[in-house]
């Protein structure tokens, strides 16, 4: 089973890298970029077949390692 975990910065957390990317996009002539926030994507392959169990396990992975919940949110997509 393939799963995708998307980790993004929480609202209100400054994202200097996103700001720099935003500035670079502006420099390339993309004039209608309002703002950019950057994040991370993890593609995780799981051996089990039970989607509910996989989701619960992925949540634990996010809480324990993949995301720092002080500053980040996560979302889980299971194919």
């Amino acid at each position: 089973m393939k799963a995708r975990v998307i980790v993004t910065l929480k609202n209100g957390v400054l994202d200097p890298q996103g700001k720099a990317i935003e500035g670079a996009l502006g420099g390339l002539g993309f004039g209608d970029v309002g703002s950019v926030r950057q994040g991370k994507v993890f593609d995780v392959e799981l051996t089990g077949a039970n989607k509910d169990a996989a989701r619960a396990e992925l949540e634990q992975m996010c809480e324990k390692l993949l995301a720092n919940t002080v500053i980040e949110n996560y979302a889980i997509e299971i194919a």
């Binding site: 957390v13 400054l14 200097p16 890298q17 720099a20 720092n68 002080v70 500053i71």
Partner: peptide, 15 residues
Amino acid sequence: EAGLLPGALMRNAGL
């Protein structure tokens, strides 16, 4: 990261 201290350390504002 281990939760022994509050908060987090992020990329320097000046990058």
